[in-house]
Design a protein around this nucleic acid. Structure first.
Length: 790
DNA sequence: AGTGCCACTTAGTAGCATATTG
DNA sequence: CAATATGCTACTAAGTGGCACT
């Protein structure tokens, strides 16, 4: 259904993006000012010729030429702006304006949260019962027997042909509790069976703990050999995420080790020994000394404030000015340390590696429902200075050390609860099988909750991922209807409906994020679709010989700049004019709309539909289309992979996934170019050799010289091929300079599309997915055949 | 409808590990 | 074999969206 996506072409071609994150300043302060600067930026942009509108700010002429060059290589993939180095400069300039409206909310917040949490726990357990007599609730079956033999359990033959699809399709909607899906058939039984089977052999389960453990181990071993195919099993209904969960808890950050006495800290030129606490925080700063962060006003201010809290009263009295602090010796010391680490002998390195491996084996896995699963992040985040992205009002604040007393453990009742480090207690032990996390704690900067969860290769993540793509595929079926629907709504007499329709159009056409509201002053000022402000778009009734052009310029997630000029339909344009009437630059563009309203509407259009599904859908469908368009079956593998990367790149551009160009980019391009030149010379030589060999053969007419010709021919071919490969590599790299492919590959592209493509063109999957990716997408690799269609 | 909390996905990057090169 | 380039992983910030509550 390539017809599905009428916008796609234009999306790709029209997107001129830039990434210099010129940051917004704090909202309350000098809004006017901010706006003006903003404007200036844009004006600058507009002055430039069309192609360079991806350039921004003090962007640099010298790079311009380069970019021109790049551009013709592939007209459809417009280059992102270069110069994230500028990005930093600018960012720092603007960030320095500081203004931390520290609100003291945090403390209150935290208390509040805690209370609520407690209440919640109580009520939710009640809740559960009301909703449904859940099968034995949380208590999981005692540990489990040998893995039931797959074949025997599996889906009965009748549905066997397409087992996966089948229940997927029905089920994918069950996030909205499709209500107790008629626990249909055998499949569901399967899980139960598994569980029951486990119980049986145990006889007196209390006694057989050890047996059980042994069993578990055995089973797990076995499993590792024959990779568990969770995707061939039935899923849990109704919000239950697991029945059995056992793990070892988190690994804590190593305790602070004081600096050797010889390493001094100087205040106002005077050597001073800091108290351990103050010293620790000082080292955090010292370690970042080379980083641009430490030059930023907000960062310094926040840091200094939090640092003082850790000082003794004498220290507090003495140290009153951060600028008089000299951390250089400390910084030097850490550099030496890391240098020393690099210089370690192989044996020492090996030893560390082994040690790490041991920790991984012990803490890196859990047992969830009979299966040993990898944990994603089993280490607690160490203390340090908060590094927000973009112009974050809280950058530089102290991220405090997390202790066992902060930790909530989640596991099943009948599991062996992890023990806290000696002399400590957990904050709480919970047995909530409606959530997927194993460990959580509350972080002190934003007061948000952090979790330890499973690896993407785990069943629990994989199922969800799969489901996500199934939802996107359902959207594919109704997208035409939905598009017609919102086009109708552009004419609505209700303002809210019009705004909703226009916003949805942007989300669909431009793959914008939903744009939830955020607390002002708590985070960097970034927006998504629903939170766009008047100042973020400009309307051009005519521009570059196109009509009704909307110019977007705003900072999105992670303060990545979104810059784009898009021709839109007349009605959209008129609506935007209407929405902007009588508004200030910092007023909301869609003042009658928020993500809640939008998503509720989407929900009515299709079950399970939310704004983010459009991103997934458009990303995947674009990949599929582009692959179809770009792949040439006659190409060699390298060229095909280039095509794949280009298709991938089209998606990354659509989704505005950017990266800072690698620091060594320029240099490595040059070396590559030298190589190419060398190869060209070599080719010329080879050709010359061939020629003379031919001439020689003509004269001599003997076998030997004929053979000579043949071998020279081959040599030429070989060199040609090598040259080709290098050139392809250069193109690919150049085009990729500031585009990050990883994010879309990992989160937006239905892996089955890629797998199918690989199979169709005889490309080994390894060329597309590395090991980790293959683990994450094991389900797709296993199930997609070459004619899979998204 | 608005709010706050919570759970979970999506995001870019620092820095280590490994491959490649001189 | 050291130096350098490149690839990958771990890390953690910053989004989205559901739900309960008012």
């Amino acid at each position: 259904m390539s017809g599905d996506q009428p916008h796609n072409d234009s999306q790709i071609k029209v997107d001129f993006r830039a990434n210099d994150s010129h940051k917004h300043k704090d909202k309350h302060k000098d809004k006017e000012h901010r706006h003006k600067e903003h404007k200036k930026d844009k004006e600058k942009d507009r002055e430039k010729p069309k192609h360079s509108n991806s350039e921004h700010k003090d962007s640099i002429e010298k790079k311009h030429k380069e970019r021109e060059k790049e551009r013709h290589k592939d007209g459809s993939l417009e280059r992102l702006k270069d110069g994230s180095s500028e990005k930093h400069k600018i960012a720092s300039l603007e960030r320095n304006k500081d203004s931390s409206l520290e609100k003291h909310k945090n403390k209150h917040k935290e208390k509040d949260k805690e209370k609520r949490k407690e209440e919640k726990i109580k009520s939710s357990s009640g809740d559960v019962k009301v909703k449904k007599e859940k099968e034995n609730g949380f208590s999981s079956p005692p540990r489990i027997k040998d893995e039931p033999n797959d074949d025997s359990l599996y889906t009965p033959p009748k549905e066997n042909s397409k087992p996966l699809k089948r229940f997927r399709d029905e089920d994918s909607c069950d996030q909205k509790p499709k209500k107790i899906k008629t626990e249909d058939n055998k499949k569901t039984k399967k899980r139960k069976q598994e569980n029951e089977e486990d119980i049986k052999p145990k006889k007196s389960k209390s006694k057989s703990k050890q047996n059980a453990q042994a069993d578990t181990k055995k089973k797990i071993k076995k499993e590792e050999e024959q990779k568990w195919k969770w995707w061939e099993e039935e899923r849990y209904a109704d919000g239950i995420k697991w029945k059995f969960l056992e793990h070892k808890g988190p690994i804590f950050a190593p305790p602070y080790e004081s600096l050797p006495d010889k390493v001094k800290f100087y205040y106002d030129g005077k050597a001073t020994k800091l108290s351990p606490k103050a010293e620790e925080v000082a080292t955090f700063f010292a370690k970042m000394l080379d980083h641009e962060y430490t030059t930023k006003e907000i960062f310094r201010k926040n840091f200094f404030k939090d640092w003082k809290k850790e000082m003794t009263s004498e220290e507090k009295a003495m140290i009153t000015n951060l600028s008089k602090c000299d951390f250089n010796e400390m910084s030097q010391y850490f550099k030496e340390q890391s240098e020393a680490r690099k210089q370690m002998t192989k044996e020492e390195k090996q030893k560390i590696k082994v040690e790490n491996e041991k920790l991984l084996q012990e803490y890196g896995f859990c047992v969830m429902d009979n299966h040993k699963e990898r944990i994603a992040n089993f280490r607690i985040e160490p203390p340090g200075l908060f590094r927000g992205r973009g112009n974050h009002p809280k950058m530089g604040r102290l991220k405090r050390r997390i202790r066992p007393e902060d930790i909530i453990i989640n596991c099943s009742k009948d599991s062996k609860v992890p023990s806290p480090p000696p002399g400590h207690k957990w904050k709480e032990i919970r047995h909530d099988n409606k959530v997927t996390w194993l460990v959580s704690w509350t972080e002190n900067i934003q007061g948000s909750i952090k979790y330890i969860m499973l690896n993407p290769s785990s069943r629990i993540k994989g199922e969800k991922d799969w489901q996500k793509y199934e939802t996107a595929r359902r959207l594919k079926k109704s997208v035409d209807k939905i598009r017609n629907n919102y086009r109708e709504d552009w004419k609505s007499k209700e303002m809210k409906v019009r705004q909703r329709a226009v916003a949805l159009y942007f989300i669909d056409k431009l793959a914008l994020r939903a744009g939830n509201e955020k607390e002002e002053g708590e985070t960097a000022d970034t927006v998504g679709c629903c939170s766009l402000r008047v100042e973020h778009i400009k309307l051009h009734p005519e521009m570059d010989s196109q009509e009704y052009v909307v110019e977007f310029d705003f900072l999105g997630k992670d303060s990545i700049r979104y810059y784009n000029k898009v021709p839109v339909e007349k009605r959209v344009f008129k609506n935007l004019q209407l929405f902007m009437e009588n508004k200030q630059p910092d007023d909301d563009l869609f003042d009658r709309l928020n993500t809640g309203i939008l998503n509720k509407h989407l929900q009515d259009l299709m079950e399970g539909l939310t704004a983010k599904v459009f991103r997934t859908y458009n990303a995947s469908i674009t990949l599929q289309q582009q692959l179809k368009e770009l792949t040439n079956g006659d190409d060699n593998i390298a060229a095909k992979i280039l095509s794949y990367n280009r298709a991938n790149r089209a998606v990354a551009i659509l989704c505005n996934h950017q990266r800072a160009p690698p620091k060594t980019f320029e240099k490595s391009m040059i070396t590559l170019q030298t190589k190419i030149d060398a190869k060209k010379d070599q080719l010329a030589d080879a050709r010359r050799d061939l020629k003379s060999a031919k001439a020689d053969a003509k004269v001599r007419r003997d076998e030997k010289s004929k053979r000579m010709v043949e071998s020279k021919k081959k040599a030429v071919q070989r060199v040609e091929e090598q040259l080709m490969k290098l050139e392809v590599q250069a193109t690919d790299r150049e085009e990729n300079k500031q585009i990050a492919l990883g994010t879309s590959k990992l989160n937006y592209l239905d892996p089955r599309i890629s797998v199918a493509w690989c199979k169709k063109f005889g490309i080994p999957v390894e060329k597309i997915y590395n090991k980790t990716q293959r683990e994450k997408f094991a389900w797709a690799i296993d199930m997609a055949d070459e004619d899979y269609e998204f």
